[in-house]
Design a binder for these strands. Structure first.
Lengths: 244, 244
DNA sequence: CGAAGTATTGACTTGTTTCAATGTTAGTGG
DNA sequence: CCACTAACATTGAAACAAGTCAATACTTCG
């Protein structure tokens, strides 16, 4: 187990703390779970449509996305997951995957078997609550995506997406002086927003021109979140942060 | 309690049966819950953004939609709920509503307090599983919507939506000789699909021309589901029906 | 029956996509 | 460390699909 691996229990308990009241004993239970770690390269699909996973996962570093493909091979990205997220809790209760899980850029992912998770849940009902809540927040982000992609123009759409990523990174302490890490190409961003590369590029240009977006060293800095929220019609209620 | 009201426990237990193994005793527990019924007129918002509901609800008849509005007052419909659906289970775990609940046409809705639901859950862990699963299927429908609205052209988008409604009605035994009940105007359908009335109208015309859509007496009949699925790139996996 | 809402259609406009070329950055191996 | 290559970003011009506008039928329901 590398140094990085030891962060998983910490990442996870921080995440769960934000979702439900977890005791120290319960945290220990979590840390003791048989985690398994894997490093994946860019654009690596590690769970596919139709699969029936026997483990759930946590994002340790990098971005993981949920995706689904048209017959023509176009990918729609359904959600973007940052470190600390549990993008595959649903497979604990729904057998067949209706979407895939893929990396963007390099990525470290932690896995733990459904069996181990279920055992932990049996002893700790607050864990069930926390996990359920995680999937509910997930659903909330889907709603945000439907709203964003269905009603907002390209510039507002991008702004909305950046606001969401900003606050989510903020919540797990991943916003530094350079902003938050962002290694998605404009092409991939387009797959999230339902836009072409060209439109994403022009939207980004527009935001930069207004001094609302700065990109350096694969990081995104948002000088004026409030203004960005206004443009993106972004409402933090969606994130259900600190509601508990 | 009217004749119709007595259907609620039946509707609910049929729904939960499809989600988890519910025993007869557990069904009785559900039926004994203090349900309260309300009839609403068309376009009635009974839960609003920012509300903190103290009860969850079940759709008894008619359609209930989740919605969210742009600053300009445009509504994006996030999901459509048919009889048997529990569109507000999330409020059991997430306090503040990030969207509204509204009727389409006339609608009967059953309510039961969170407290009563929580008590029932404490005695019956399979109920928690069933409820959790319902919210997970919900999330799956959101994913379908993101895919549909983001990647499909108007005709395919409408086809996809109709397939979803068909199979969902089928699953609760609501597809009759006339097809399934459908009282949404093309305007409202547009709010689901992120299209204008005009586009919806033309898409409907195209499907009718291909003999894939018949509308009579506020019902929709789908003569060839297979063909409709093909056009809408619809994959039933999304619905997670009969997975248990 | 009449009013209001809904469906349907055509003509026109606009914004996004497509196509395509060029500039820029990041990563690899000599 | 530099050169080379592939991936990514940026831009302009043209095509086109969906939106807007607007007028006319058709329903539904009080």
């Amino acid at each position: 187990m590398s140094l990085l691996d030891s962060q998983i229990p910490e990442l996870l308990s921080r995440k769960l703390q934000s979702l439900a009241a977890i005791s120290a004993a319960e945290e220990d239970t979590l840390a003791a779970l048989p985690w398994r770690y894997e490093d994946f390269g860019p654009r690596h699909q590690f769970v596919g449509v139709g699969d029936t996973p026997t483990a759930s996962c946590i994002v340790v570093s990098g971005f993981v996305v949920r995706g689904r493909y048209t017959e023509a091979g176009e990918r729609q990205i359904l959600s973007v997951h940052i470190p600390g997220d549990l993008p595959d809790l649903q497979s604990l209760n729904l057998r067949r995957m209706d979407h895939s899980l893929e990396t963007i850029g390099r990525c470290r992912v932690g896995f733990v078997s459904h069996n181990a998770l279920r055992r932990a849940c049996e002893h700790t009902s607050s864990l069930v609550t926390a996990f359920w809540r995680e999937t509910l927040v997930d659903a909330s982000l889907y709603r945000a995506a439907i709203f964003r992609n269905g009603q907002l123009e390209p510039v507002a759409r991008l702004a909305h997406f950046l606001c969401e990523l900003y606050f989510r990174h903020k919540a797990v302490g991943l916003v530094g002086p350079k902003g938050f890490p962002f290694q998605m190409s404009q092409e991939v961003t387009g797959e999230v927003l339902g836009l072409t590369v060209v439109s994403v590029n022009r939207a980004a240009k527009a935001l930069r021109a207004q001094g609302l977006l700065e990109t350096t060293d694969r990081h995104i800095h948002v000088p004026d979140v409030t203004a960005l929220c206004r443009i993106g019609q972004f409402d933090r209620t969606f994130l259900h942060q600190g509601e508990r």
